[in-house]
Amino acid sequence: MSSKATPAAWSASTAAPGWAPGEFEALFTAHYPRLAARLRLLAGERAEDVAQEAFVRLFRHPPPRREQIAAWLHRVAGRAAIDLLRRQQRQDKYERAAAREAPAAVGPDAEQAALAAERRTRARACLARLPRRQAQLLWLRYAGGSYQEIAHSLGVRVNSVGAMLARAEAAFARAYPRTPAPPGASVRQGKSMTGGNGGSNALL
């Protein structure tokens, strides 16, 4: 680690300790938008904050193997986002999140949008109840990660992902009935909550 005084702000174009000129900027450009987008599932409006913090850590502690950076970022950021989600759940921000996400129900499209928002909020709350690793797995899967990405982020073999996913979703299904629906959902649930094989049955 360099003993030079830290500048007021690093410039992406100059060489910071552990980084070649422009290297960090290139990584940021390549990974930040997708990471921030995926984190919205867990962290909502704080997704960018969580993503940026992960990059701050990356900047300060560059790993020796650059090819693992995407997996590292998802692992670090996912963990932080899940912890944040759990804290938010504990702090009873559930209602506020539901209120922010659920648009005013005006017309059938808005009604559907409100239903979707409620399901998403409840699913997120259910996620917070799971062991962190299972929550991280489901986040990676439903944020669009491939089995390869999931395996790299979690440090497991690709052919283990299916089994882990099956177990995580079974745990999710068990936790779902115990996860309270967002306020106002009970009226809408009676209408259309049981599409397909879903609903709130604990299907193991």
Partner: peptide, 16 residues
């Protein structure tokens, strides 16, 4: 397995 996965599907819904 499909039924369990369908419960978690809302996680994949695009955020506002």
């Amino acid at each position: 397995l499909a039924a369990n996965a369908s419960l978690a599907e809302p996680l994949a819904a695009p955020e506002p």
